[in-house]
Nucleic acid binder design. Structure first.
Lengths: 164, 164
DNA sequence: ATAAATCATACTAAATTACTAGGAATTGAA
DNA sequence: TTCAATTCCTAGTAATTTAGTATGATTTAT
């Protein structure tokens, strides 16, 4: 049960755009440089985010991406679901509304209870973190790193602020 | 992000053994019949569960599997981790103790907050459901289904009690 | 002896992931 | 007008993972 690079890279890219798009749109070339993800792959991730209405883009020179809404109004769940599809490790009838599967195993309804709790707990978790919080955290860490370089405390701080 | 058949089938098989092993060990042939999973695949799942100390087996004719501890002392988390490995959709340094990965992406520590919350919420969910509860639920449903057949309410009840 | 069962290991087809590649369309600036 | 920077769109592909099957050895009750 792994979150794919779509979700992992995509959230990082989204936060990056949120952090750097205050004045002007952020180009994927810049995101790629900062996050060490290929432009080509980023394009695919951005297509999903845009289709979900989470980003707006301007084409051509000096173009790029900005958030479609304030970061305080976009949850991590919004972003991850746009990238990964449903965040439901188990999809079986009666658990998700979208399930098209049919289930006809004999005997018992027990494991369904488990799948529902897992699904609900994940969605509850990601729906209660907003991008704004992560933007602030990123700014705080970037600042710490600058101070750290002055104070020769790179090792501690880079560990504290490592990303993924 | 999907839970594999190892986890899905394996938990069902484990519950099945818990339900039917009151008097004698449960053979995989019987589990296979009831749960519609091949014996050969079940053998692989049981190897993991046994290695984790969750089941005991007796070989030879009339052999089979029983739980190694009372169902009230085995959590769903124990079972799923035995089958799937760590239930951590994102494994990155500083989040899990077992992580051997190194992370050197520049700038920011934000997404790590998210991954930790997701991992914690899943594990908290599965560690607070015990097999005993699922055994009782299974018994309740099996009984309902029998009554349902008598009362000609098969459709409703089979929906209510469907498994997966 | 035989049949029923676990145990152990190797193999494989299908699906998914994680990208890369190539080019078309748009836009600001020289 | 031309050029470079950019998003947009689609196809392809190598590597990995999944979801099993297959085969045979070993153990044990009858």
């Amino acid at each position: 049960m792994k979150l794919s690079t779509k979700g992992r890279y995509g959230l990082r890219a989204f936060i990056d755009i949120a952090v750097y798009s205050k004045d002007e749109p952020v180009s994927l070339a810049n995101v790629a440089k900062r996050q060490d993800i290929s432009i080509s792959y980023l394009e695919q991730l951005m297509a999903k985010l845009k289709k979900a209405g989470l980003t707006k883009s301007t084409r051509g020179a000096n173009g790029g991406y900005v958030l479609a809404r304030p970061a305080a109004q976009i949850s991590v769940g919004d972003v991850l679901r746009a990238l990964e599809g449903d965040l439901t490790p188990v999809d079986c009838p009666g658990i998700t509304d979208t399930s098209t599967q049919h289930c006809d195993v004999e005997g018992g309804c027990a494991s369904k209870i488990v799948w529902k709790k897992i699904n609900d707990s994940i969605n509850e978790a990601v729906d209660n973190i907003y991008i704004e919080e992560l933007v602030e955290e990123t700014r705080k860490c970037n600042q710490n790193q600058e101070e750290g370089l002055i104070n020769h405390e790179e090792i501690n701080l880079s560990r504290q602020c490592s990303n993924h």
